[in-house]
Design a protein around this nucleic acid. Structure first.
Lengths: 144, 144
DNA sequence: AGTTGCCCTAGAGTAGAGTCTAGGGTTTAT
DNA sequence: ATAAACCCTAGACTCTACTCTAGGGCAACT
């Protein structure tokens, strides 16, 4: 009916070390201990843990995740706070996506250059330009 | 005709510390020094630096960026290596985007729950379920 | 000649997120 | 009743990527 830490590690892909670390960081206050002092994860705990992973995977810091979990532990009265926190995070994710999108385009532009049939010529040109610029500014040539 | 480190910092949004750090890490072997030993960034250098930022912004580690820059310094003969490296990175970016996409959906699901008119009821239900699970497994209740 | 505002290096310090070790208890199978 | 395979904590260590400090040089103005 409950899961030991090893099983949870296998289910989530987190290491046992990481799970204990998260607990130490106050991310798992909802995980109870059995009579031997072992962590006993319920299905509900796994759901919350999945939420934690979801926030982590989208770049939320542990301190902020702790805050969110704190709100969850506080019960339904903290719904406005949870909303505010998640909404702000949602925007952070959107910014992150936009940044990656932009930079991915740039990488694709580079790749297109290298994939071009005359890639060697283009790269040669770039290099020649860079060298010329160094010379024009009386700077040592760092290339070659 | 060339830019001092402070100007480059302003242009790129990187701190002066970070620029020097990148240089120390071997990311800026193409930046020459003037007669006083000061870094003198040319336009071409700024382009390369922009590429570095682009790789960094998409999660490439400094060690890998250094490798890429090493290929660039080696001239046109390293085009196949550059292609391979960027292609692999392109795939890493795609995986990253997919992960964020998936987790963003999850966040949106949570937000939808909190935005629902009966949010308090739903959250109450979840909580009741979680508590029941603890009791069913003879575990102490961590909530409240 | 002195102050201001840049620039430099070396190296120490910080922050975040783990990862691992030592020392010790528990449960299960042999 | 002992080994194997788990579990626990405290705390040290690692890695990455900065960030800052100390100590000192150069260039321009006053």
């Amino acid at each position: 009916m409950t899961y030991a830490i090893k099983e949870v590690a296998e289910k989530t892909g987190l290491s046992i070390y990481t799970l204990r670390f998260y607990d130490k960081q106050g991310l798992l206050p909802f995980v109870s201990r059995d009579s031997s002092g072992y962590r006993a994860f319920t299905e509900g705990d796994l759901h919350l843990l999945k939420t934690i992973c979801c926030l982590k995977n989208t770049g939320m810091k542990i301190a902020d995740i702790r805050q969110y979990i704190g709100y969850v532990m506080a019960g339904p009265t903290s719904i406005p706070q949870r909303q505010a926190l998640l909404h702000a995070h949602r925007q952070a994710i959107a910014r992150q996506q936009a940044l990656i999108q932009t930079n991915l385009k740039e990488v694709d532009r580079k790749l297109a250059l290298y994939d071009a049939p005359n890639a060697a010529d283009l790269v040669d040109q770039e290099l020649a330009f860079a060298k010329a610029e160094k010379i024009a500014n009386h700077l040592p040539n760092p290339f070659n």
